[in-house]
Every structure is written in C-alpha cells, then in structure tokens.
C-alpha cells in the first residue's frame, strides 16, 4: 500500500519538483574515466549507402568484446535447465558415432578403409558437425535475433559469425573424445599417429569455417528478406550430407569427384581423413573444394555487407 502512495506522489511531483536528493548518493561517484570508456571517439557520417560496401575491420576490432559475449551467451545458454548439463557436449558426438556405426558400418557395411568404422566415421563427423550445425545456426541467427537488429547498432556480421563459432567449442570437445579413442586404437595396434596431422588441421579447421560461413552468411541475409529459407536450410544440410563423404570414403564416388568437389565439404572431409587417418587423399578434390569455399565465402561476405543496411527495415 505504501509503495502505491509513493508512486502516486512521485507521478505528480515529476512535473514540478526538481528531482534530487534521493538520487544524489548514486551520482556522487563522479566519473573521470569517461575518456577511456565506450567506443573510441570518432566522427560518424550517416548517408544513404549503395552498391558494395567494404568491410570495416577497425570497427569490428573496436567491438571485439561484444563478439566474445555473443559467443559466450550461446555457449552458456545451451545447457541451462538440463539435467546432464555440459555432459551433453560429450554424449552427443558419441551417440552420433554409435548411430552411424550401427547403421552404416554394421548395417550397410560401408568400407572403412582398414580402420574400425567408429574411428573412420568420427574423422568425418568432426568437420561435418561443425559445418552442419554452424550453417543452420548462422542461417537462422539474424531472424532469431531481430530485436537486436532493430534496436541497436553494432557490426551485423557478428551475429552469424558468432553463431557459427559456438560450434568450434563443440568441435574441441569432440576432438578431445576422439583423441582418446584414437590414441587407444593406436596403442592396441602398436602404431603411432602421423606428424602431419596438426599442420594439416591448422589448414582444414579454418577452411571448414570458411565453408560454413560461405553459405551461412548469405543464407542469414536471405532469410531476413525471405523467410522461405528458414524451411529450405534443413533440406540443404541434408542433401549436403549425402554428397559429402561423411559416412563413406570419398573414393567410392569414382570419376564423379570433380563435380562433387564443388561442394566445399567434399574435399575438406577427405582432407580430414588424410590428416588424421593417413588415408590416401585426392589433392585435386581438396583444391577444388577449397577454391569453392573461398569463392562462396567472398561472395557471401559482400552480399551480406551489401544487404545489411536493409536488415532493420525488413526484420
């Protein structure tokens, strides 16, 4: 009751009283740090933009902490209100591996090139999970966060890129599990993993991100304008899985590889198998796939930049 009366008086006072004392104590901490705070002081010129727009690296650097928080938000939200919590990060890849092994390894007897099928398929699942999850997440990222687009300014590229980067963390967890299985396998065989695994992965992992964003950025922008893509993306991911050597060795496609390698993940997954398992690799396929990935990425990036100024109008 007392709160109500207080509220009433406050509303009346609003108009005539110089508001003061109650807030004075908060304002005592007078700020002398305003110089270094917030974004760098700069002049902003706002005018209609047309055509292709360059990427503002400096601005993105200024906002880098926001990028970190966007990623961390998605990470920390993921397993909230689950009983198993972060354990899901371990269970999910293991379950996928088991399902694939049962269906494709045991059931369809797909060749696993002399390795146990779980070891073989996991090497493909690592990049595939990063790609497929990252692609779906980034494609939907803008429409799912419309309120951000219409209420505040920040580099728009952060939204889809952060959504995809979240899955790098998942990949690291999966890679840890895989490393255990993999080293155990080598130990039982009395062999050791090859030295080129790490340098190759240093090329392949960034290339997987390039492939993911190569499709993800453009799809994110398109989904803002045409919600149809929201329904198309799951099919796209499904189709891509069948034309990528996730659960089968790349050599099975025989002479079709130059065409299939236009799918960036074809050559990349083949590359992972070479890097991790030392299986013969098709350098031509990796070259074609890398080239398409980079090409699509550049196109996607510029398409995104070109259209981002309209996001808030359509969102």
């Amino acid at each position: 009751m007392s709160t109500n009366t207080e509220a009433t008086t406050a509303a009346v006072e609003l108009a005539d009283s110089p508001l003061v004392s109650s807030i004075a104590n908060i304002n005592n901490e007078k700020h002398d740090y305003s110089r270094e705070s917030s974004r760098e002081a700069s002049e902003v010129v706002i005018r209609p933009r047309t055509g292709w727009i360059a990427i503002d690296w400096r601005e993105m650097w200024t906002y880098r902490e926001l990028f970190y928080y966007l990623v961390m938000r998605d990470v920390s939200v993921r397993y909230k209100q689950t009983v198993l919590g972060p354990a899901w990060a371990v269970i999910q890849p293991l379950l996928t591996m088991i399902i694939f092994t049962v269906i494709f390894g045991r059931g369809l007897e797909i060749p696993s090139e002399g390795f146990p099928y779980p070891i073989f398929v996991f090497a493909g699942l690592l990049p595939w999970t990063l790609f497929s999850q990252g692609l779906s997440a980034s494609a939907l990222s803008l429409v799912n966060q419309q309120q951000l687009l219409t209420k505040v300014y920040f580099p728009r590229l952060f939204v889809p890129v952060a959504s995809a980067c979240v899955f790098l963390i998942d990949m690291a967890v999966s890679a840890g599990i895989y490393a255990v299985l993999f080293l155990f396998f080598h130990a039982t065989q009395g062999t050791s993993p090859s030295w080129w695994t790490l340098p190759m992965l240093a090329y392949l992992v960034p290339m997987t991100m390039v492939a993911t964003l190569g499709m993800g950025l453009a799809l994110a922008a398109l989904t803002v304008f045409y919600r149809d893509f929201k329904h198309l993306v799951p099919f796209l991911v499904q189709i891509l899985m069948y034309v990528s050597p996730v659960f089968y060795p790349a050599r099975l496609v025989k002479d079709w590889w130059p065409i299939l390698a236009l799918n960036p993940m074809f050559g990349i997954i083949d590359g992972y198998r070479y890097a991790i398992l030392g299986l013969p690799c098709n350098p031509g396929a990796l070259a074609i796939s890398s080239a398409t990935a980079v090409g699509m990425f550049l196109f996607s990036l510029f398409y995104f930049r070109k259209t981002e100024r309209q996001f808030a109008d359509f969102a």
């Binding site: 917030s38 902003v44 005018r47 209609p48 938000r73 920390s76 939200v77 309120q147 209420k151 109008d313």
Partner: peptide, 30 residues
C-alpha cells in the same frame, strides 16, 4: 545507424549510445 536514410546526410561527432528499448540483448536464460 540502425536504418539507412534514403536521402540526406547526418554527422555525429562523438561516441553515441542509443537506448531505443529497455534491455536490448537481455537473454531470458542468463
């Protein structure tokens, strides 16, 4: 800078903060 103007120009000299909504970016689960 949330939407682009169709015509004309504006110049702002200094750091800008906009408050167009209460709790922009708040996440329910956080």
């Amino acid at each position: 800078r949330i939407v682009d103007p169709t015509t004309g120009m504006a110049r702002l000299r200094g750091r800008v903060a906009s408050l167009l909504e209460v709790g922009t970016g708040f996440h329910q689960e956080l």
